[in-house]
Nucleic acid binder design. Structure first.
Lengths: 365, 365
DNA sequence: TTGTAAGCGTTATCAG
DNA sequence: CTGATAACGCTTACAA
């Protein structure tokens, strides 16, 4: 139980020759063999205490940092890490409550298995990513990639266990997510059953082109993010089942999942004539922004306007009606699939969703 | 630009012999040499297109996944990853807005450098951590570890570049954080200057013993988390400079940084006779909980009670007065120090803090 | 207990 | 442009 200060002081004698630290196990093996030194570190019970002691002393003296993890990894054939790939900038990912919830679950699984979580940046622009190719990991978890994103091919090329979360579903490969059409429909149906007939929709994450503005049918249906596309399909289906013409539902698309973007969408939608009595959003953050817009306009929620979010990731405080998505469980499950002996039979696991009704929705007045 | 589906289909012919994928570059080197194959992958411009093409074909046919990243790492002497060590459970870390803000900054730096961010779990219980020893990384960022935590020694033992963030400061090693005593004093002074004389304090993250309850002077001063200890010292100094006896300031300590814990602390403090007119907390989340407690008791904020948070990580929405800590910048700086050519001269970098006055503080009435 | 030797899969060097 | 050879640093039968 050496304290770092002590250790630091202890080796300060040779601190002048910083570059001369012994790095090879070989160097320690002066009057013993390489194998013995290896045992001293990795299998202490395979040699006498005295010898081990002596070896450790020499190690300290020479400034040996212990067995090189990379070499060890190579030899042992395991990396001790789980790779996580995400379509967005990492900074963006960490700002998204849903993603963070998912990370929590995944991290829990990694933690339990004693492996690290290697978060891999995916150069967003044109620059080719060597990240996936070079990642020292035992498996990959891919989250929320747009259809045909090159990183997906790169991941599969590594021939390691892979689990895809949320999107895109690749038949024959493990997948964890929710039943998007059903979840979307549940959100829409809730409003329809309350009696709303003038709906508006605000969605983020459909396309990668950074477009913010009205979205026509063609754009909606050609969204490159499968899960969001499917969720929207659920909205539409519920409307049509209720006899509502989807063509009459104003649809606003934003490029970033931020409160500000939600507010902008809210203003656009609420500026329509006739004004919608209810707005569907595909994230809680967006919904919060819509609430801001309503406040700006002096509209009372839910009296004048009903708002539904999605994911239950930032909804509780604001009393937002939303569809709960078991984000933590999804992350944890994905992790366990990857870490507990690999992915046996490719499954398409759909976690349950749940409509949570709070105070942001009510019948139209 | 092969799509994964195509590639998958393409190799399905040999999908029966899953275990027979070629894994060594050697196997591809049938009528060419190993070096040539290596070049085909890592230095495409060093050989004819035709040959490269042929090699790639053979690779595809044999199911060769490309150069083994671990072996590559070993040979090249670089891991392509930055290790991050955090004292808490990962799930807990991701739930903490300050930590997440810091992660964002660090991740941005990692992203720019094209390296991954390896988040290392630190078994919280007794179980020894092999995580640090085995991590395949080029450098370590250590965040918020309690004094003398064994992981710190393990990190230094790796003899890789290390930057410590927030705590504990190790003289002679790079450090990034804020001037805690000054920041704490600024928060307290704000209340004192408003005219408050009956203060209460709620803090989290002082000790690791899970204690929730009143905290006496001895406990306060022996806190094992240096930054929080220093921050508290700032509170005390400001009070004493204002002629307030610190012994008369009720001090409540909680074990978890949650809104619920803050509410509990709030109730404890507000139940005192005479009731404090202002409460200092060392996180925004805690402060939010104190606001909840005030609401429970029907106290108006700031009329009946002033509350100050810390970090400006969850304060804006609630109109909370707080001390802004440049969490993103801190993370980014730590990352850049580690990634841009290592850490030259050990520095102790203190980022500026800033008192942000919002609507949760006012003179006592 | 300890030592020997054969890999793990790559890339750099340096000759052709 | 290609090919042999020597590292990179470690682990682990197997033999002593």
């Amino acid at each position: 139980m050496r304290h770092h200060i002590v250790r630091h002081a202890g080796s300060s004698r040779s601190a002048v020759h910083l570059s001369e630290y012994a790095s090879r196990i070989r160097t320690l093996a002066r009057d013993v063999s390489r194998a013995t030194v290896s045992y001293a570190f990795s299998r202490p019970d395979q040699l006498s205490d005295a010898l081990r002691q002596r070896i450790m002393e020499v190690a300290d003296e020479l400034g040996y940092a212990g067995p090189n993890p990379t070499a060890r990894s190579l030899r042992l054939g395991r990396a001790g890490a789980l790779g996580l790939i995400f379509s967005e900038t990492l900074a963006y990912a960490f700002a998204d409550p849903y993603a963070v919830g998912f990370f929590q679950g995944l991290a829990t699984a990694a933690e339990d298995a004693g492996v690290g979580l290697l978060i891999l940046p995916l150069p967003h622009g044109d620059r080719r990513s060597e990240t996936v190719r070079d990642a020292v990991v035992d498996a990959f978890c891919v989250m929320s990639l747009p259809d045909g994103h090159p990183a997906l091919a790169e991941v599969f090329a590594r021939r390691l266990p892979v689990v895809v979360v949320d999107e895109p579903y690749v038949p024959g490969h493990p997948f964890v997510g929710i039943d998007e059409p059903a979840a979307g429909a549940a959100a829409a149906r809730h409003l329809l059953e309350l009696g709303h007939r003038r709906l508006g929709v605000a969605m983020v994450g459909l396309h990668e082109d950074g477009h913010t503005g009205w979205s026509d049918r063609a754009r909606q249906e050609s969204a490159t993010f499968e899960a969001m596309r499917a969720r929207r399909g659920g909205y539409q289906r519920a409307c049509e089942e209720a006899g509502l013409d989807w063509a009459g539902v104003p649809f606003y698309e934003v490029a970033r999942n931020s409160r500000e973007a939600g507010r902008k969408a809210g203003h656009a939608l609420l500026g329509r004539e006739p004004r919608p009595t209810a707005i569907l959003t595909n994230t809680d953050v967006l919904a919060l922004g819509v609430l801001d817009a309503a406040a700006d306009l002096g509209l009372a929620v839910p009296a004048d306007l009903s708002v539904v979010g999605f994911s239950d990731s930032a909804a509780e405080e604001a009393g937002l009606t939303t569809v709960r998505q078991a984000k933590q469980e999804i992350g944890e499950k994905a992790g366990r699939l990857l870490l507990s002996g690999g992915v046996a039979k490719p499954e398409r696991l759909l976690f349950p969703h749940e409509l949570i009704v709070r105070s942001s929705t009510a019948p139209p007045s």
